[in-house]
Amino acid sequence: MESTPSLHSLSPWEPGILALGVFALMSLVLIIAFLFLASWLGEKKPNPEKLRPYECGIIPTGTARFPYPVAFYLIAVFFLIFDVEAAYIFSWAIAFDRLGWSGWLQISFFIVILLVSLFYIWKKGGLEWGPTARKSPVSPETSSLPSSMN
């Protein structure tokens, strides 16, 4: 495929310092314009209440920056792992024909390892969320009248 003939100095196909300079300048002008418009048009009625977190109209208690329970962190880490997995699989997928069978074997090995780790996390209870011991809907005590009633 032939690239479109263009003016040499501003051609996107021929990297040059002038093109970069124009691009940087345009970005700068846009940013300045946006910032100026926002600050010129924006209402400025500062009020300490506006800076306070909204908590149903009550002044919040304590800080939000404190050691979080580890469950949130675990979920974040699991997400990261499987997100990276997707990135590798996509990059393999767009070139799978050129990578051939060896590429297929390698990605399969990669996926299997991740699947094994997923089942491991699952089994270890890493995906459990919230109070695990939910009360059963019908317990013997609640289904019949308490004896003290009679």
Partner: peptide
Amino acid sequence: HQPLDAGAFVKQREGDREFLVLNMGPQH
């Protein structure tokens, strides 16, 4: 006359576990 601070209603920690104290309501 601000409503009473939420800390007066619930316990904020148990052992070494710190809890997040949250007001749900009155405007919810």
